[in-house]
């Protein structure tokens, strides 16, 4: 078996007295899409930010491509990319200008043709010369995804990529995610509050609650474990939290 593309062990983050991520461990293997799920405040985005090296962990270890992240940050980041609903590309620049800048930062070979390729993949080629700030929310999200795919990342972090998209565009984005996984073997860490996304694109899910990993497994294993009909029901149950903790499931899962 190949070593994991991303290995997270006992990852912990304290902000003062608040524990945002508490001993989280998981692996993602090549070509796998792992859904990182949980209610707002569960610690998903903090975990992703630690994997990106934007937030320093209080404890634990992150290995990407078999290398310790912080010691090899630049080398590792060159082979990664991310797209988050919380970021934008500079609104004053035209789409091609934004992609050109990031393509140069990520040292993308044959940059101009790669820009055309990703724009076509996300079906926004016709917007190439448009100013980024004039795009609709859905077009902006697809532009962010173009940026994230530019360097053909081996590891892609997608933080709620379909959050502001209508069902049609969200479906197109899911197709792109599956396509790059299948055709390029891209490994993807995916967060979403849309359980349909998760069921459709994720091979496994990690449910987080109050900074801890509650359960890791396939969708079927998750439904079986929580004895629920759908991931949405599991999500709601996890988000409401109280009865889970009273059953000692967090403690059990963290053993």
């Amino acid at each position: 078996m190949h070593p994991p593309v991303l290995r997270v062990r006992e990852l912990t983050k304290h902000f003062g007295n608040v524990t945002s991520v508490d001993g989280v461990s998981f692996d993602i293997f090549r070509g796998e899409v792992l859904g990182l799920l949980g209610a707002n405040g569960a610690g998903k985005t903090t975990a992703i930010n630690m994997v990106l090296g934007i937030v320093t962990p209080t404890g634990g270890r992150i290995e990407v491509f078999g290398k310790e992240l912080m010691a090899n940050r630049i080398e590792v980041l060159r082979q990664m990319n991310f797209c988050s609903t919380y970021t934008q590309l500079p609104g004053n620049l035209r789409i091609w200008q934004n992609l050109k800048v990031f393509g140069q930062i990520y040292r993308v070979p044959n940059l101009n043709s790669r820009i055309d390729e990703v724009l076509e993949m996300l079906e926004i080629s016709h917007l190439k010369k448009r100013v980024s700030g004039e795009l609709s929310a859905g077009e902006g999200t697809r532009l962010n995804l173009c940026k994230a795919l530019l360097n053909r990342p081996r590891l892609l972090l997608l933080d709620e990529p379909t959050a502001s998209l209508d069902p049609d565009i969200a479906d197109k984005v899911r197709r792109v995610v599956k396509r790059i996984r299948d055709e390029e073997g891209t490994t993807i860490l995916y967060t979403s509050h849309n359980m349909r996304d998760v069921e459709e694109v994720c091979d496994r899910v990690v449910f987080m609650h109050r900074g801890k990993v509650l359960f890791t497994g396939t969708s079927e294993e998750t439904l079986h474990h929580f004895k629920e009909e759908s991931l949405e029901d599991v999500f709601i149950r996890v988000a409401r939290g109280g009865d889970i903790e009273s059953k000692g499931e967090i403690e059990e899962a963290s053993k």
Binding site: L52, I54, I74, L77, T87, P90, F102, I105, Y106, K147
Partner: peptide, 18 residues
């Protein structure tokens, strides 16, 4: 500040930029 105003800061600091 240009990066802050355009919400581009994370794109830059999560990129291979020292």
């Amino acid at each position: 500040l240009e990066d802050v105003w355009s919400r581009n800061l994370l794109n830059i600091f999560a990129a291979p930029v020292t």
